[in-house]
Amino acid sequence: MLSCGERSGRGQVTTADADLGRGGFDDPVARERLVAVLTETASAYARRTGCAARTGGRVEGVGVTTTRRDHKPVADATGSCAGVVDARTAARWGVHTAREITRDPAPLENCALGGRSGTFLYGFTASYGPSAREARRRLDHRSDDHSPRRAGAYELTARCPGAAGTALFQAETLHDEDDPKSAAPDVDHEGLRAALQRFAERSAKKHGCGAVEGV
């Protein structure tokens, strides 16, 4: 996702679909090769179309969660989950693990807080550009269908420059399909809203966005 100027919504998005072979996304070298091709393609198109985007350098290392084992103790979180909940809140919520991405700004940022074995309990997501529009479309579709609102689901927004457009930040309790008996305890609604505020403000600041606001 490249911003072609400071005006909100002005930018370009390039995507890639690929068969990465037997290892798939578990192979870090294959991930890096795919991202290298994608960034070169996006940069070349931006130059041809007069998009004055800052493209940076070559991406080295594409750290993504590819298995259920890719979690860490919540106290060791240094990326998107860092600072979302303090130790006291984590203990009260039964949170022991975190799945996260790096601190670097991305079109889609997420943080999943889980139980001792990594079972999903709470999820936080920051969506920008097309990711935000798709997330908003799903919310609107759910409202049109009068689908019940998931317990402990909250949203915030922020106006951002360039391709990021209007960002959407979401927090919700998660359902673990592999462990249906495991679920978040009685939802601390005030605490969950406060955690979303912290998550959203940190993400918005990385993207140069304006103030975070309620939906």
Rank of each mutant, 00 (worst) to 15 (best):
R10V: 10
T15K: 08
A16K: 03
A16I: 12
D17P: 04
D19M: 12
L20V: 15
D26Q: 12
D26E: 12
E32T: 11
R33Q: 13
R33T: 06
R33I: 09
V35G: 09
L38M: 13
T39K: 09
E40D: 10
A42V: 08
Y45P: 06
R47M: 02
C51W: 04
A52D: 11
A53I: 05
T55M: 12
R58C: 15
E60N: 04
V62A: 13
V62L: 08
G63L: 09
T65G: 13
D70W: 05
D70E: 10
D70N: 09
H71M: 09
V74W: 08
V74C: 09
T78R: 05
G79V: 02
G79L: 00
A82D: 09
V85L: 03
A87S: 10
T89I: 10
A90K: 00
R92I: 02
R92P: 00
H96N: 13
H96E: 10
T97K: 04
A98D: 06
R99F: 03
R103N: 01
D104Y: 00
A106D: 08
E109S: 14
N110M: 07
A112L: 14
G114T: 03
R116I: 08
R116A: 12
S117M: 13
T119M: 06
L121W: 05
Y122L: 06
Y122C: 00
Y122F: 11
T125I: 11
A126I: 01
S127P: 09
Y128G: 04
Y128L: 12
G129M: 02
G129A: 10
S131R: 02
S131I: 00
E134N: 07
A135D: 13
L139T: 09
H141P: 00
R142A: 12
S143Y: 12
D145K: 15
H146M: 14
S147H: 15
A151Q: 15
A151I: 15
A153M: 12
Y154C: 03
Y154M: 05
Y154I: 08
E155L: 08
L156V: 01
L156F: 00
R159H: 06
C160M: 07
G162C: 03
A163R: 02
T173Y: 14
H175T: 05
D176L: 05
D178V: 08
D179H: 06
P185V: 03
V187R: 01
A195E: 02
R198S: 06
F199M: 08
F199I: 07
A200K: 01
E201R: 10
A204H: 13
A204V: 03
A204G: 08
K206L: 08
H207E: 10
H207A: 10
G208S: 11
A211Q: 06
V212E: 04
V215E: 05
